[in-house]
Simulated scan of single mutants.
Amino acid sequence: MYHLRSYLLPSKRLQKDSRRILSEAANVGAVSPNVEIPADSVFKSALAGGISCSLSAAIMHPIDTIKTQVQASTLSFSEILSMVPQLGIQGLYKGSIPAILGQFSSHGLRTGICEASKCVLIKFAPTLPEIQVQSMSSFCSTFLGTVMRIPCEVLKQRLQVGLYDNVGEAIVGTWRQNGLRGFFRGTGMTLCREIPFYVAGSSIYDESKKAAQKLLGRELQPWETVVVGALSGGFTAVSTTPFDVIKTRMMTASEGRSAAFSVVLFSILRHEGPLGLFKGAIPRFFWVAPLGAMNFAGYELIRKAMD
């Protein structure tokens, strides 16, 4: 699930530290206020998360470009697909530089913060239910990681729809149009998309994994876990598509057009109907599902190599 396992489950080293701390807490009846966050483990998790996400984002960028063009225009998915030969490889990879940089920084920060916050929560509140630890750490890490990525997301989408020809033009043009505020256009909608995706999506992943184990009557093989994660991520991606559509329209609004949430929402409903909020759901599914599978496998391999 967009490497949810990587974000929501602590590393083996962190799990050992947690068990040791819980044992000490049971013996003394309290947890020491001196919290020592395993900096080495947190750094490795952050680096592994950043590398795996940036690599998978580079590979899957053409599908993301198609999704963005579908959502930003009134054309259908099939009509955009017919235009792919005209775009060529260069057109499909427009915006890839800010996309890769944004994924590396944001997911690196997310994995690092998630592991560090779990360590703190486990030490200060050892009796806190696991689901609450997961939700709190996932919320904090997703919020901070997403906010860091938004300027890169704005530049990426404006390049993908052809508003600018290169990153330099996109930076200068965005600054001239709206100043610093322009680089954070669509922040609210991005958070509305990302937080449910990671926080609520973790429950879908966990329940899907349990259901698969019960159906097969055994523990899942690594590749089976990846498949469950990919399908769960794809389903969650489709369910959060309306937020993604509104975010895309807000970020790619040309100069002179209002990018306010209410204006964009009513414009979609008036001209395209409720189904307009699900534009790009198909390419979004086929973008997120393999992306999640690659991120999951990549994170695990890189993390094991570092250990």
Results as ranks from 00 to 15, higher is better:
97 I>Q: 07
97 I>G: 03
100 I>P: 02
101 L>C: 13
101 L>D: 01
102 G>S: 08
103 Q>F: 10
105 S>K: 01
105 S>E: 02
109 L>A: 14
110 R>M: 11
111 T>V: 13
112 G>Y: 00
113 I>Q: 01
113 I>E: 00
115 E>R: 03
115 E>L: 12
116 A>P: 04
116 A>E: 02
117 S>C: 07
119 C>E: 02
120 V>W: 03
120 V>N: 01
121 L>Y: 02
122 I>H: 02
122 I>R: 04
123 K>G: 00
124 F>E: 09
124 F>V: 07
124 F>R: 14
125 A>Q: 02
127 T>C: 00
128 L>C: 09
129 P>I: 05
130 E>V: 11
130 E>M: 10
130 E>D: 11
130 E>S: 11
130 E>F: 07
130 E>L: 12
131 I>L: 08
132 Q>D: 08
132 Q>I: 13
134 Q>W: 06
134 Q>H: 10
135 S>A: 15
136 M>G: 12
137 S>R: 07
138 S>A: 15
140 C>N: 02
142 T>S: 15
142 T>H: 05
142 T>Q: 10
143 F>T: 12
144 L>E: 03
144 L>F: 15
145 G>I: 07
147 V>P: 03
147 V>M: 12
148 M>Q: 12
148 M>G: 00
149 R>N: 11
150 I>F: 06
150 I>T: 10
151 P>S: 09
151 P>E: 05
152 C>G: 10
156 K>T: 13
156 K>S: 13
156 K>Q: 14
158 R>A: 04
159 L>D: 06
160 Q>H: 06
160 Q>V: 08
161 V>G: 06
162 G>P: 12
162 G>Y: 12
162 G>S: 14
162 G>A: 13
162 G>K: 12
164 Y>W: 10
164 Y>V: 08
166 N>P: 10
166 N>L: 13
166 N>T: 11
167 V>N: 08
167 V>K: 03
168 G>P: 00
